[in-house]
Design a protein around this nucleic acid. Structure first.
Length: 419
DNA sequence: TCTGGGGTCCTAGGACCC
DNA sequence: TCTGGGGTCCTAGGACCC
């Protein structure tokens, strides 16, 4: 291997949410390790959030998959122990992991709540990489209590693919020269960025393994998949060269909140209230980021077939006020809703710009006053908690006045197609 | 009795302008 | 009114990730 090449580790927490729970419970006197029994972290069925978020290795043996409905999982695994999620705990575990990694190098890129890349180029030599990764793996296990899989290679894509090779509690390499042997025999859907739609099309073309995708004619892929084809071909060949970015976060492109309501919404008034609760959190997050938006969109998921549709609007002058966002949401909802029962509603803002550049349009409502109210409410919520103040129209409705994750929970930079 | 919630990027089509 | 092209902006939807 060329010494000028980069050396990247991908650190992936095994069954993250479930491991975090297991460790926490053991630390608090639990006799059973959740990782040793059929168990899963899942939302509440009563509020229709009942899907599997993470599962133990024994659960996996029953064929239970992440994202599956609880009732489906229980059909496969009747004695499944269900644990409700505790995101605050997971954030703590996440921060501990990041801190530990920063002890090795400051070039740490947080990729998700349970995945990080670290750039070890120049820190160690390539021939020390497995040894170092094992050291890191052991330290995490000893100090934090959970296991990780570490992948090693010369770029982020290969490091990520490497960490998938052996789980749990393992270190694997996938250097470019190992691609034919280790990556090409894998089913094509194992390749990062090959999801359901793409793998279906690839199989139809007779491309079943990553190797066969790698050897496929690039022009054919470009013809069939447009720009996506080039990405697929590159990834199948291990080509990717983005850098490990230790910046806290990429520039935010949009902020959204959405929620599955625990009953079907069939009237406009209820829908409005949910939109308001979503707009409240979206607005607050927008203002905390010091941003304004020029696009507001809503999404509606139908109760009967779970399909969804959306409607959006571009506005002339950027806004950051909850009321303004809410007013546009109502308008969008009225234009879009066809009257069918609703299971899920979402509010999202995009086309963001710094709040300081905002000029209020003369023709729009007096939102200067509204801004002051927003600011005051934000301050009270920051100081006394999100539940300390809410709009009186939520009283007695049984609806949450604030819907969706605030601050940290939602602050995850999610990956783009360019790693 | 019932499938979450947070993101990013790309594309196609229509409106509109030159 | 016919013909055509190029470009931008906006919107809806779909792909993917964790």
């Amino acid at each position: 291997m060329n010494s000028k090449e980069k050396l990247i580790f991908h650190v992936d927490v095994n069954s993250a949410f479930l491991s975090f729970e297991a460790v926490y419970r053991l630390q608090h006197g639990a006799k059973v390790d959740l990782r040793d029994i059929p168990s899963a972290v899942a939302g509440s069925q009563a509020t229709r959030h009942g899907i599997i978020l993470a599962k133990s290795a024994p659960t996996k043996k029953y064929g239970v998959k992440t994202g599956e409905a609880i009732w489906e999982a229980k059909r496969k695994c009747p004695h499944l122990v269900i644990i409700p999620p505790n995101y605050a705990l997971y954030m703590c575990c996440h921060h501990s992991l990041v801190e530990l990694l920063k002890g090795f190098t400051d070039r740490v890129q947080v990729f998700s709540i349970d995945e990080c890349f670290i750039d070890m180029s120049g820190v160690i030599e390539a021939d020390q990489s497995v040894e170092t990764a094992n050291l890191l793996r052991e330290r995490i296990k000893k100090e934090l209590g959970f296991t990780v899989s570490i992948g090693i290679s010369t770029n982020k894509l290969l490091a990520k693919m490497a960490s998938e090779l052996k789980k749990p509690d393992a270190v694997s390499t996938l250097f470019p020269e190992e691609i034919p042997e280790k990556m090409w025999p894998l089913p094509v859907e194992e390749l990062y960025m090959v999801g359901r739609a793409t793998s279906f099309k690839l199989h139809k073309m007779g491309i079943d393994t990553i190797g066969s995708l790698a050897k496929c004619d690039l022009n054919l892929l470009k013809y069939k998949f447009k720009s996506w084809g080039k990405l697929l071909w590159d990834y199948a060949n291990g080509i990717e060269d983005s850098s490990v970015s230790s910046a806290n976060r990429e520039t935010i492109k949009g902020i959204g909140n959405s929620t599955t309501i625990h009953f079907d919404v069939e009237d406009k008034k209820t829908a409005y209230q949910i939109l308001l609760s979503l707009a409240e959190t979206v607005g607050m997050r927008l203002r905390f980021e010091g941003l304004c938006c020029r696009v507001v969109s809503i999404s509606i998921k139908k109760a009967d077939d779970l399909t969804s549709y959306s409607h959006q609007l571009k506005i002339q002058s950027p806004i950051d006020s909850t009321t303004a966002i809410y007013e546009y949401c109502k308008q969008l909802f009225d234009e879009a809703w066809k009257g069918e029962p609703i299971r899920h509603l979402g509010v999202r803002v995009s086309d963001l710009s710094p709040a300081s550049h905002v000029q209020l349009s003369m023709f729009e409502r007096d939102w200067e006053k509204q801004k002051k109210i927003d600011r005051a409410v934000d301050q009270i919520r920051t100081k006394f908690g999100p539940g300390s103040i809410f709009r009186s129209n939520f009283l007695w409705t049984g609806l949450a006045p604030l819907e969706g994750g605030l601050s940290d929970d939602a602050a995850f930079p999610v990956m783009t197609s360019i790693l």
